Amino acid sequence: MLLSMSPKELNRVDVIRDISERRLRQKDAAELLKLSRRHIQRACRISSLLVLNSDLTYISS
């Protein structure tokens, strides 16, 4: 499956991945992405439900 993502979306994916790998706190991620901490919590919860398979390819558009 091929997904086309903007640079902004790719950055968001990277930040959420950093949170899940405990390299970044939700509070700091909220500041980086200019979102509320609640939005970050929601994004992390949704991303934890998704299974990112190795067959997914991200392409910046």
Rank of each mutant, 00 (worst) to 15 (best):
49 L>P: 00
12 R>H: 10
41 Q>D: 03
46 I>P: 00
43 A>R: 10
48 S>C: 07
40 I>V: 15
8 K>N: 02
48 S>Y: 08
37 R>H: 13
1 M>I: 10
24 L>M: 11
16 I>K: 00
36 S>H: 02
39 H>Y: 06
29 A>C: 11
61 S>M: 08
42 R>M: 02
18 D>W: 07
37 R>F: 05
11 N>K: 14
5 M>G: 03
29 A>T: 05
53 N>K: 07
17 R>W: 11
12 R>L: 11
53 N>F: 01
2 L>P: 04
28 D>E: 12
55 D>H: 13
20 S>G: 11
45 R>L: 07
38 R>H: 08
54 S>I: 07
39 H>T: 10
23 R>A: 09
41 Q>W: 00
38 R>D: 02
55 D>R: 14
54 S>Q: 10
3 L>P: 02
50 L>S: 11
42 R>V: 09
60 S>L: 06
57 T>D: 06
26 Q>V: 00
4 S>M: 11
54 S>A: 13
19 I>E: 04
40 I>H: 08
28 D>S: 10
4 S>D: 05
35 L>F: 09
38 R>M: 07
3 L>R: 13
21 E>G: 04
32 L>M: 13
9 E>A: 15
61 S>D: 14
40 I>Y: 12
13 V>A: 09
29 A>L: 07
22 R>L: 06
60 S>T: 12
55 D>S: 15
16 I>D: 03
14 D>E: 14
49 L>M: 13
17 R>I: 11
1 M>K: 15
18 D>H: 06
20 S>W: 06
43 A>I: 15
3 L>Y: 15
42 R>K: 13
9 E>Q: 15
32 L>P: 00
51 V>P: 02
32 L>W: 00
5 M>T: 04
19 I>V: 10
60 S>R: 14
48 S>L: 11
61 S>R: 14
3 L>D: 00
15 V>P: 01
24 L>W: 05
47 S>M: 12
21 E>V: 10
4 S>V: 12
5 M>A: 09
5 M>S: 00
61 S>A: 12
23 R>Q: 13
11 N>D: 06
22 R>N: 09
25 R>W: 01
17 R>Q: 13
7 P>H: 08
55 D>W: 12
49 L>K: 12
27 K>A: 09
48 S>W: 05
27 K>H: 02
43 A>C: 03
60 S>M: 06
56 L>P: 00
50 L>K: 06
4 S>N: 13
55 D>G: 14
59 I>R: 13
35 L>Q: 06
26 Q>L: 03
47 S>I: 11
34 K>N: 13
58 Y>W: 15
29 A>G: 11
15 V>A: 06
58 Y>G: 09
11 N>S: 07
11 N>C: 05
25 R>G: 01
25 R>H: 02
3 L>M: 07
49 L>W: 08
38 R>T: 09
29 A>I: 04
53 N>R: 04
7 P>E: 13
11 N>W: 06
10 L>Q: 01
50 L>W: 06
41 Q>G: 03
25 R>C: 02
56 L>Y: 10
40 I>E: 07
54 S>K: 14
51 V>L: 09
21 E>F: 12
17 R>Y: 12
53 N>M: 03
15 V>S: 04
16 I>V: 15
49 L>C: 11
19 I>F: 02
40 I>G: 06
38 R>G: 05
58 Y>N: 06
39 H>S: 15
16 I>H: 03
34 K>W: 01
37 R>E: 15
6 S>Y: 10
59 I>V: 15
26 Q>S: 08
32 L>I: 12
19 I>K: 03
56 L>R: 05
44 C>D: 09
34 K>E: 13
